[in-house]
Each structure stands twice: as C-alpha cells, then as structure tokens.
Design a protein around this nucleic acid. Structure first.
Lengths: 238, 238
DNA sequence: CCTATCGGGTACGCTTCCGTACTGAAAAAG
DNA sequence: CTTTTTCAGTACGGAAGCGTACCCGATAGG
C-alpha cells in the first residue's frame, strides 16, 4: 500500500511515468519488498502471482527448455518491471525470473495489475511499451548469442547490468556470469583476466568493479546499445 | 477488402479466431496480397505501413545491429502475423522482416489495425497473445543460439519452417539458411550432408525435402518444441 | 547454343570454446 | 581457531565452427 504523497521517492522509471489519474489503479496495491540475492520472482511453468517494479537491484530472466538447459534472455532493473506475460494476457510464466543482484522494489498482485490494465488505456499503453522494450532486448540477446564472442557477450552483460546500478561494483561470481551467458565458468575467468589486463575492471572474489566503462563499450561494440537506444526512443528523454 | 462471406476460405489462424463482432473492424480493411520470395515486409528503422496475415509462405524476422550484423529471431507463417510492434504501440520496425518462402496473405494498413485494437478489447487480447507467442519464440531462439550446435539449430529451423508449410519440399539455398542462423554457408552444407546420410532429408539444388520428420525432431531435441507447445496452450487446441 | 551466374562440394589452417579436473586461497560455518 | 565450503586460477586435449578459397555442375540469360 503506497499513499499518493509517497510517490515522490520512487525511482522506478515505469512507476514514475504513471499518470496522475492512473495512479489510483496502481499505487494503493503496491507493496514494498526487499529482494534478496537469488530470490525467485517467477518460476517457469507456474502462475505469476505478482509483478515487480524494481527500485534497485537487477533481475535476470532465463529461458528454460524441457531438458533444463537455460540461458538469460534479458535483465530487468529500475527501468522496467517483471511479469511481462501478465501484460500480454498470460498468467503463466514461461521463464524463470530471479534476482541476480539484491535490491528492493514494489510488487503488485496479478489481479490488481490486470484490472488496472483493463481499466486504463493510458496505463496499458505505458506497460505495453515497456514489454516491447523487453522484447527488443531479448531479440538482441539472440543476436549476441549467435554472433558475438564470449568476451563481447560478457562486456555487453556487464554494461547492461551497470546501467541498472548506481555503483561500479558488481557483486557477481564467475559461476553465475557463466550460467547467465550459457558458457563455461573457466571461460568467464579467462575473459575477465583479459579485462583486468586492459584496465577495464578490477576483480575481487565475488566482486567486479567497472573501471573503464568507455573501454568496455568498445569491447562490446554494437552488440551493446541498440535496445538501450530503443528504450530511450520509446519513452523519450528524461 | 474482404466481405464477411469470404471468411470461410481463410487459413490464417489469427484471422480465423477473430470473433464475429470484431470482424467488421478488420475484414473490410484486409487486402489480399501475393508475397514473392525475398519480398520485404518491414525494414529496420522504418515505419511499419502494414501488418501481414500470412495464408501461405514463411516470413523471417531478423534482428539487426548498427554494424549490420543480423540474425533471425523468429519465423512467421499462417499461425500469426507480422507487425508485432504495432500491437505493442510502436509504429517503427526494429527488425527486418521479409519472405523467406514465397506465399500469399492479407495485409491491413497500420491505422486501421491500430484503430481496431483500440476499439475492441477482445481483438486486442487475441493479437496480444499472438505477440506473446512470438516473444516466446524469440526467447528460445536466444537459447538455441547460445547453447545448441549448428546441426541442432538447423534442425530446429527446418522443423519450424515445415510446420508452416503444407509440403515437405522447402525451397531454400544453403546460403540463406546460413544467413538465418548466422553461420557459414559451408557449415550448413556439411550439416545437410549429415542429414542426408541419416536419411532425414533429400537435397537438390535450391531445395530440401524433409523425409523423416521424427528423426529431425530427435536431432533438434528440446531446442525445438517449447514455443510450439506454448502457442498451443495460448490458443487452445483446434 | 554459348556464356555468365549461382549454388553447392570440399579442403586447410586457425580460433574459440568446451569438458574436465586439479589446485590453492578466501570466506563462511562451526 | 578450525573446518568446510565456495570461488577463482590454471591446464590440456579435443570438438566445433570460422575465414578463405578454389572447383565444378546446374541453371538462367542472351
């Protein structure tokens, strides 16, 4: 439950953009939550109970097949929300979504969200644009997975995650990076050494600090940036 | 322009599912079109002028980056429609969409489609589900691109295309298959030889004939099938 | 019919990345 | 403080696929 006067402190870009009239449909149903590392927000094949608007932290969306092979298809932070299928009219999760970096946010129950979407065209338009932005991200993940080298994909991932944090220190193990990208843990280790050698990052056990963001963008090349630019276009500059 | 009584012959699954009341919003604006091989339906960065409901043939949706690297993120046939961004409230194409296998269909102008979606909730729900199905396909393309071998990805692609045709003969060159998958042409040639050796396909210049579909499904393993099952679930059996 | 183009077969060296596995160090648990 | 667990460093052989390139036969165009 969030009073109207509490809106001022909200950092989530989507919640910020909800119009005054629409706020009554959403605000009163929001529940503040802290989100631990590895906390599951959606499980593949199970109903989606809540959509989460993140205020901090990063969530990963993983596609899964019937042999439990998985790979990340997108990341979500304070620019968006989880529960995209709800917006598309489906209450079942196709993906596993969980917190990659701990944080906090607000969540809204499925029914309240669906009701709000049904009631307000402007709200629906807003959330659909957000879902569309996520789709574009997924498409470019497919592109990067098919064409980029491990190093480029890793750079892209670090940049996308960095975009969603306020610090340069990313609390991540090589193991989990490897799981995200669908590659070997050892491969990630070697790639990170390459980054360190070039002064792009400094690494400590369980932590990566981005030192030279511009350099990292050079490594990622044009595998990074298109979805970000599209999001900018969809939502205008702010 | 399509009269109500002409609906009987329509094969497109989405058009078939449009309710009687909604048909007035769509049917009168449909224009029958034949679609040549390589015909472009949407161009990356340009406005989307029409959405296409395919009756036959297969369209490919390609993600493109700023260095013109590209890869297919989904295929569309008589089960769906092109112009997904229109449904999401965006009139600009992020992708290049063009006919991979010639066919025919109906198209509707952007404004007519957007108007229809704004007017009818049931129609909106239907088309959103279709867009969602496409999203799932894209996510699994990302999974296959990241984790599958060339041979498995090729098998997956052939199966998805075969699903959308009424014949076992696929008019495709190795060159174009390679472009779709983002791999070498020579790699496709070798993989197809493997299929021939196992009696899964027969090949002629510019044509592949699927002989043993079950065998091909075995090769693709669980990289094929999840989006198809989800589409089934979303739209029920028919 | 002749010619140009296109699609396919094949080869070679090379890069990338995998599978696996062992090690030591850091951190957490007791 | 000690033990256990987690995380990272490293190595080696091998598979997969790339870039490139050359050749030939099939088809299309003149």
């Amino acid at each position: 439950m969030l009073e109207a006067h509490a809106r001022a402190g909200i950092r989530n870009r989507l919640l910020q953009k909800i119009g005054f009239d629409d706020w009554d449909l959403i605000g009163p149903h929001l529940e503040a939550v802290t989100l631990r590392e590895r906390q599951t927000l959606e499980t593949h094949g199970r109903p989606i109970l809540h959509a989460y608007f993140l205020e901090s932290g990063v969530a990963s969306v993983m596609a899964v097949d019937t042999e439990d092979r998985r790979i990340e298809v997108g990341v979500i932070g304070l620019e968006g929300m989880t529960g995209v299928p709800l917006i598309m009219g489906d209450a079942r999760a196709q993906y596993c979504t969980y917190m990659q970096i701990a944080g906090s946010g607000y969540r809204i129950a499925r029914d309240a969200l669906c009701h709000a979407i049904a009631e307000s065209e402007s709200l629906r338009t807003l959330l659909l644009k957000s879902a569309h932005g996520f789709m574009i991200q997924t498409a470019h993940t497919a592109l990067a997975n098919g064409r980029a080298k491990l190093e480029q994909r890793l750079a892209r991932w670090l940049l996308m995650t960095h975009d969603r944090l306020t610090t340069n220190a990313l609390p991540l193990t090589h193991e989990f990076l490897a799981a995200m990208l669908g590659v070997r843990r050892a491969g990630v280790t070697v790639a990170i050494h390459g980054f360190e050698d070039r002064g792009l990052v400094t690494a400590r056990r369980g932590q990566l600090t981005l030192v030279d963001r511009a350099g990292m963008e050079q490594v990622a090349g044009s595998f990074y940036g298109v979805p970000e630019a599209e999001l900018q276009r969809l939502f205008g500059e702010a």
